[in-house]
Each structure stands twice: as structure tokens, then as C-alpha cells.
Design a protein around this nucleic acid. Sequence first.
DNA 1: CGACGTATTGACTGATATCAATGGTTGTGG
DNA 2: CCACAACCATTGATATCAGTCAATACGTCG
Lengths: 236, 236
Amino acid sequence: MSGRHRMLPMLQILAHAGEAPIVPPPSLSRTLDRQSQKDTVSQLLPSRTVVFLEGFARSPCYRVVDGCVATYQTLSDGRRQVIDLAGPGRIVGLGAGDRNRHSAETLGFSRLEVVVEPLAARDLEVALTETLARSQALAMLLGRKTAPERVASAILDLAGQFGRPARHKRRGTVTFHLYPTRTDLADWLGLTVETVSRCFTRLKKAGLIDIQHNDLVTLLEPARLALVAAGDCALS
Amino acid sequence: MSGRHRMLPMLQILAHAGEAPIVPPPSLSRTLDRQSQKDTVSQLLPSRTVVFLEGFARSPCYRVVDGCVATYQTLSDGRRQVIDLAGPGRIVGLGAGDRNRHSAETLGFSRLEVVVEPLAARDLEVALTETLARSQALAMLLGRKTAPERVASAILDLAGQFGRPARHKRRGTVTFHLYPTRTDLADWLGLTVETVSRCFTRLKKAGLIDIQHNDLVTLLEPARLALVAAGDCALS
DNA sequence: CGACGTATTGACTGATATCAATGGTTGTGG
DNA sequence: CCACAACCATTGATATCAGTCAATACGTCG
């Protein structure tokens, strides 16, 4: 449950020192430049751009126009938990308080737009509610599902967010671009890279999915995949 | 990850059949009577009273005045995940949609009051935000913390919600009534009853807590307990 | 007192983590 | 264009934490 973790960027270590400044973090390369946000409606950001960091002065909310953003928290020893993966239409950065409660970074070339503060109360409630429901579903997954169930659930979730109904070959099949790496998935699902990889292999061998070039996933049997995800059908 | 589970009440099975009626569930003994809600400002309910059930027609929100309410989701095979334990002042039942997204039941004699619909937008946002933050903290706990870390985190959470600063003997000690059973705790923390019990024993032997009569917990060393909860200090 | 529900403890098992080796892809610079 | 490095993914061997099974103890209520 502890051990091998990715190295923390300096900023993150600061955030955990309990003395994080209430000023925006220095504008690193790869860190979103706050000035230019005001000028443009939306920005195209490269992969692995840090949008905001846990513990720093509260950032505005962002709407994902295109691409994918991961939000996550980290423990002081580097253990990371991805809280959500957000695709087009989703809003990240919701929450009160004067500090960000989690970090956010892009997982691929992504277009984000700053959400202007006076967001309609109703819209805010809807966005908060959706985020809450997803967070609770994640808790169910993390607390009570097996590794294959978690991976199947993740694939279905991502298919819903990123999938095109492009069933060019078979009816009912869906294909989507897999933004998260195996490490991202592992940190989202409470597993290790190796376990995620093994589950993918099993799902492929069972004929439920297919993967091309490591980042293009095709759902071959969505219905059976849903059964696995819900724990109603064991895998192989 | 699967196996021994508590028996599901019939109602819950219905909720999972995908054909749950959009009418309120029949008023069983132990199920909160909706009629009387309108008449009284708050109701005193016995332990294990079901406040509302996942999958059924959307219930109003309730404010916990006194006692403790658990919200939870269940998988079709009976695996249960407690999403939150709510003490005095907290609101349960938040969320949109026409069905309840989770069930709720009292864990001890509890006083609840129905939250009148036109809740101030600001209050609603605050309550939603707090619930969201707790849910995300739970995800971090479930995905990345070890069993002793989870139990320590839970004790600190409950101390915050139910603790009185009644340090009659030592300075800094806090005592609180433990509403959840070991099973409830296990379902909240993604563990088994046995593991929760073993962690309690270890925390007691380490001198971090004391337990009287199975349901009265005293924090002997809150600071060290917080270190364990954060993963900054291994246990024994 | 006896019965039931709950908690504790011990012995053993098993799913997932850890460690380790290999292979594939991408990007960079000679 | 190729060689190399860096990163990511896969696969196998082994270790470990938490789960399972089982027995006992505790507490409350009839």
C-alpha cells in the first residue's frame, strides 16, 4: 500500500508543508499562465499541464472544452489518488474554501476555458451534484469492487465521456481515445500499474474489449462489460 | 472482496431490479413515516431506522439534529459501501435526479428534521461542497491508505463530529460515543469487521486510544493518531 | 439462565502488491 | 537514417496485507 511513487514536484511538497503561500504558484513552464487566461476565452494546453495545485490559493473553475483533465490529491509520502477524470463539458475546480482541495492536470492536449464567477446558481448546483455523484460512485468502486470490476467500470466511464458511437464495423461497439496512462488509471482505481495491465489483458482475452496502440480502446461487448463492472459476472 | 454479506431487505432487492416504483416504499415498521414528517419539525427515530432507500423516488433532505445517520450504496450481490456518517448539523439526502442515489439509516436514537425545499442557495452550496469534500477524502482513504491508517482517520473524523472536549482527566483527550458498529465501520472503510477490530486492538495497545463498553472511545494521543491517519507514522 | 447479536482472536488463504526482467514506442541528436 | 535514452506497458516470480474461516468471549434482552 506504500512504496514506489512518482517523484513529487517541488511545488507539491510546499503544498504539504502547511505553509503554502496564498499567492499563485510561480509560472513554470508547463504551469498555466494566469495572465493569459483573462485574455482568451479558452486555452489549448499541452499534456501534463498543471492547471492548479492542492493547497494553493483557490483557483477559478475551468470547463473542459476538449481533452481530459485529472484531479487528484496526494499524501505526504507521495501516494496519489486521482479523484476524477473529466472530459468535454465537465467542470473542474468546484469547491469552497480559500485553498484548492486537489490538484488538476491535463492528460492530453486539452482546451479549457475559465468559468466566469457568477455561474448561475442552478448550473453550479447541477455541476456540484454531478461531481458528488461521481465521487460517491468512486468510493463504492474503491471500497468494494475487485480489480477486474474496477477496470471494467473505468472503461465504461471513459467510454461514456470520450466515446463516439462510431460503430464503423460492428453494431454496438464503441471506440474512444484513452487519455490516462496505466499509472493514471492505477491511481484512479486504487491499484498498481501492473494490476491494471493484467486486467486489461484479461478483458482482451475474454473478448470484451480491444486495444490498439495502447490508447485506443474498443468496447466489443458493452453489455457483458457492464455485468463485470457491476460484479454480476466474474471474469474468465 | 466478495463473500459474506448481510442479508438484503426485500425493498433493496427491488431497488436493484431496475424497476423500482416511483412511489415511496411501503411504510414498514422501522421505516420513516412520511405523513408525520409534515406535522413535526423534527422526529426522534430509533436505531436502524431507514430514512430513505437507494433507487426509490427522491426523498427530501434531512438535517441531523442529534444522533448519527449513515448513507450507503449496495451492489446487487449485497456488498455495501457506507458513503458517509453524518452527525449533528449535517444534511443528508443531497443530490439531484428523481431517485435517491443512496440509502440512509440511523445508527442510534437520532433526531432528524426535514429540510424545507427552498433552502437558501448559498446554504445548499455550502452543504453540497462539504459533502463533496468528505466524499473525496473518503476516496483518498479507500484508494491509498492502509487498514490502520483508515481506522485512525475514521476515529479522528468521528471525534470531530461527535466528540466533546470533555477532558475530565487529561488535557487534550477527547471522548465520543461510537455510533457505528464494527460492521458499519468496515463498510465505511472498505475493510472487514475482523480487520477493524484488529486495528482497534493495535491502536489501544499503542496507547493512542482507549475504548470503554465497545462504544465509548477516548483519544489519548490525538496528535500521534493524526500522524498515523496521514501515513506519516507507522503503527507499532 | 439461555439465546442472540456483536466483538475479539487465531490459523490459514488468497488477491493484489512488489520486485524484476523484457519489449515497444517516441523523441533527440549525431 | 540510425543509435540511444527515456518512458510506458507487459509478463513472471514472489511477498504481504487484508480476507476468510472458525472458535471463543462478551453483553443485552427475553
